[in-house]
Amino acid sequence: MTNADASQARDRDPQGRARSARPRDGLGRPLPYGAEGVLRQPEGVVRAPRETVAEAQALLGAGKPFHAHEVFEDAWKSGPEHERPLWRGLAQLAVGLTHAARGNAVGGARLLRRGAGAVEAWERDRGEDRPYGMDLAGLTRWARELAGRVERGAGPVDARAEAPRLGP
């Protein structure tokens, strides 16, 4: 098969962008074609901020941090410019938990710390510690504590048991 043939065989979305149609598990890992997977989060959904928080919290509580990351990513890409660093930091926290649950200690700890730093910087710069009811200081403490445990060899973590509470 030539490179041109391979590129034509790739899964594509309606706009022609490469998108894998493979089913995925609850942590976003690809499964073989035909396997029973977890429904994916629709991409590009514009939600009100509190809807974003509620949807992400439900997904985190269900042990689906990869899917929560996609909800935060939608807010990051569609929200007001001044809030984008906050939503990007929250997406990084969710991806960090995803990697930690997959057993990727280095990537998990790195993303948890990066997300914690972004959320903390946003809180400091904006002077808001509870936007949309979220406990940003609590989230940064959670992320750093989990990053430390993951680095010390906690092994793959249980995404549901380790899911943070976004708010009170």
Rank of each mutant, 00 (worst) to 15 (best):
R84H: 07
V95Y: 10
A105M: 05
N104F: 08
A116I: 08
V71T: 13
V95K: 04
G107V: 07
V71N: 10
R102Q: 15
L86W: 04
S78F: 02
V71R: 12
L111R: 10
N104W: 09
P85W: 06
V95R: 09
S78K: 01
L97R: 08
F72L: 11
G96M: 01
G115R: 10
L93P: 09
G115I: 06
F72A: 10
Q92C: 08
S78T: 14
T98Q: 12
A109C: 05
H82Y: 06
V106L: 14
L112D: 00
G103D: 13
W76G: 11
G115P: 11
R88V: 00
L111V: 01
V95F: 04
V71K: 10
R102F: 13
R88E: 15
D74I: 05
A109V: 03
G107K: 04
H99D: 14
A75I: 03
G115W: 09
R113G: 10
L86E: 09
T98E: 11
R110H: 14
W87V: 07
N104E: 15
E70R: 11
L112R: 00
P85L: 01
V71D: 07
L112S: 02
L97M: 13
R110W: 13
H82N: 08
G107F: 06
E73A: 05
L97S: 09
L90H: 09
G103Q: 12
G89W: 00
N104S: 15
E83V: 04
A116N: 07
L90A: 14
K77L: 14
H99R: 15
Q92Y: 10
R84L: 05
A94C: 11
R84D: 08
H99K: 15
F72C: 09
L97K: 06
G96C: 03
R102T: 12
A75P: 01
N104V: 07
A94W: 02
T98A: 00
A75L: 03
G107D: 10
P85R: 04
A101D: 05
L97C: 09
G79R: 03
A91E: 14
G108K: 05
R114T: 14
L112N: 01
A94P: 09
L90N: 11
F72N: 10
G89R: 05
R102H: 12
H69E: 15
A100Y: 05
V95W: 04
G89E: 03
G108A: 03
G107N: 08
L90I: 04
G89A: 08
P85T: 06
R114Y: 02
H82C: 00
A105H: 05
K77N: 00
G96P: 03
R102A: 15
A116K: 08
N104I: 06
A75Y: 00
W87F: 13
E73R: 02
W76N: 12
F72M: 14
A100M: 08
A105E: 12
R114W: 00
T98P: 01
E83N: 05
D74M: 04
A91P: 00
G107L: 06
P85I: 04
G79M: 03
A116L: 06
P80V: 10
R114I: 13
E70F: 12
L112V: 04
G89Y: 01
A91T: 02
N104Y: 12
E73L: 02
A75Q: 09
V71A: 09
